[in-house]
Design a protein around this nucleic acid. Structure first.
Lengths: 166, 166
DNA sequence: CGGTTCTTTCAGTATTTTCTGAAAGATTAT
DNA sequence: ATAATCTTTCAGAAAATACTGAAAGAACCG
């Protein structure tokens, strides 16, 4: 297989994967492109490579920077912005977990607190309280674990895996 | 807070959470509803409760059954189908991991194999091979770990957490 | 300054995803 | 069989999401 073909296939696949994780296709494709680029790319190069508009490129690159997956790089004597991706998959996953924990798990825990202990005026209410208590316990445990993981060393993932499967 | 209010809030929140995980809102809401129900519900009850059409209810309930998160329950002398949700959060998460591993991680690994080792005719191709090799190694590790987890016993998650945070 | 180059915004458009409801298909009872 | 009840399908409609490109905004240069 030649390089061009491999590259296109990878970008396409990564985009599809992103879609099923609630990340939009283009954002995932930009990420894929930067992951396999041997050097920083300008927004213009990204636009051309993926055949997307300037607005689209700009917005998705920014989103990736917000997620901490892509960094801006300035070259002396050049007015363009260049972008590089984090290439260590362990760090990529860590950033994603970090973001999602904050954006999803934390709000969920907040709501669970709010709706804990409704008045048990009927069978349904009793079942409800029990279910919510279970979910809350599980979620808190998950939250605590994730917090620990992201604070841990850079090689946390391999370590965590080892402990888990022991 | 009274029961009705808590229930609505939970269903709404669970639906929103589902959305950001690539699960459609209604499917997540049906799941939420069944999670907190003290007994099996009929499709009709689901439709009324969530104010959705029969087709929509039917399709999403089926999807939940495909995921192994909801089971059909028949009552003697009643022609309606009733549905119950898996309520043990550990099992719910396990099912989800199982499904996503099969639907996402496995195809990804396949593609990575296909695009491994493109001819190194330029700088880009070399960088590409390196990036792909990294991603492949990481993904295989993750895959192996997940396989182990889902084969482990039912209380695996709590156990894993305990080991991790120790 | 005024010109040049690059970045950002956003209203309108396009695409994708999801939902509805009526019709067709099953299943059971009489 | 025929009717009654429940389930499934699917074409078209609606809603949600993402994209474009032109215009406005910055930053830099001479």
């Amino acid at each position: 297989m030649d390089w061009q073909e491999g590259k296109d296939k990878f970008i396409q696949t990564w985009g599809t994967l992103g879609t099923s994780w609630g990340i939009n296709r283009t954002m995932a494709q930009v990420h894929a492109l930067l992951m396999i680029a041997p050097r920083a790319l300008s927004a213009e190069e990204v636009m051309k490579e993926l055949k997307i508009s300037s607005g689209n490129a700009n917005m998705n690159i920014r989103a990736l920077m917000d997620w901490g997956l892509v960094y801006k790089e300035l070259k002396p004597g050049d007015r363009k912005d260049y972008f590089v991706s984090e290439k260590d998959m362990g760090k990529v996953v860590k950033q994603i977990i970090l973001n999602r924990r904050k954006k999803e798990l934390e709000p969920m825990l907040k709501v669970l607190d709010q709706i804990s202990g409704v008045e048990e005026t009927c069978e349904e209410a009793t079942a409800f309280n029990k279910a919510i208590a279970d979910i809350k316990m599980f979620s808190s445990k998950a939250d605590a674990t994730l917090e620990m993981l992201i604070k841990a060393e850079s090689n946390w993932l391999a370590g965590a895996f080892l402990k888990m499967i022991k």
